[in-house]
């Protein structure tokens, strides 16, 4: 076709993503989060200096889609892997990509201590308030009264504890330089999230400390909703509990 010429090209899938079909449910935010992270690295021209760490959870196969050198960690341990990689290869960009169960339940110790040591890495935290891969069980970030397969009558806070605001928690640690909460369900939010990721990669690389980007996302399958319903539900229920925006900038908490 005549129209396919370099000068007419306005958008192209980044080479930092493979051509493999995503394993995520249609409507899920993971695909977008993957893409913008990879676009940032490609735009920065640092693909060959990047090592990523995939978690256990829906994004366990992230290395199938991200066209970079990657390691797959045991459940919750990605920040420990990233710590060693960055200490042994200080000239590399190192990041983890983790869900809420991985980062805020089983991996809480590794998350907090990597943050506290101020490792110069980026943590990308996808919070959808549920265990997606294992079929919709209650996560540490599941909202009060929210139903899941292990809280079928809703999360009873007296019995099951409270949703963990781990992002606010780690923001208080001096080793953490930049903390922000973003979303990827609308074009405006995608653009904001991408800017945040770029800032995180640049500032961690500049040895300013750990940079933490939470992305509040949907799980239409786990929440038993259509993709659109889930995005509306996310805006109405998740965002009030997990408000979007910067939490810590340049090492200072945002008031």
């Amino acid at each position: 076709m005549d129209i396919i010429k370099t000068e007419n090209l306005v958008y192209k899938k980044t080479d930092a993503m493979t051509d493999k079909a995503l394993s995520y449910c249609p409507g899920c935010g993971h695909g977008t989060a993957h893409r913008i992270a990879m676009e940032v690295l490609e735009e920065m021209g640092v693909i060959q200096d990047t090592i990523g760490v995939a978690p256990v959870g829906c994004s366990v196969l992230a290395y199938e889609f991200m066209n970079i050198d990657m390691q797959q960690a045991a459940h919750g341990r990605a920040p420990a892997l990233a710590t060693a990689i960055k200490r042994l290869w200080p000239s590399k960009y190192v990041f983890t990509y983790q869900g809420d169960g991985d980062l805020a339940a089983i991996g809480t110790a590794e998350t907090i201590h990597a943050c506290n040591r101020g490792e110069n890495i980026v943590i990308i935290f996808i919070n959808n308030g549920i265990y997606g891969m294992t079929g919709g069980q209650m996560a540490p970030t599941t909202l009060p009264n929210m139903k899941s397969s292990t809280s079928p009558y809703g999360r009873d806070e007296a019995m099951m504890g409270h949703p963990l605001k781990i992002t606010e928690l780690i923001a208080h640690l001096p080793g953490v330089h930049y903390v922000t909460r973003q979303a990827v369900h609308k074009p405006t939010e995608v653009r904001r999230a991408k800017k945040a990721l770029r800032k995180a990669f640049e500032q961690s690389y500049a040895k300013k400390g750990l940079c933490f980007v939470e992305i509040v996302s949907n799980c239409n399958s786990g929440w038993k909703m259509t993709p659109n319903q889930s995005n509306i539900w996310m805006e109405e229920n998740m965002f009030p509990y997990y408000p979007l925006g910067d939490i810590k900038v340049d090492g200072q908490l945002v008031k």
């Binding site: 390691q71 420990a80 892997l81 060693a84 590794e110 201590h113």
Partner: peptide, 23 residues
């Protein structure tokens, strides 16, 4: 590099991260 980890669980996973890079 020498690092005191937060637990043995973290230590062995640091080993995994480091060994994965050929170090």
């Amino acid at each position: 590099v020498v690092l005191q980890a937060e637990s043995e669980v973290a230590s062995i996973n640091m080993i995994y991260g480091g060994a994965s890079t050929g170090k």
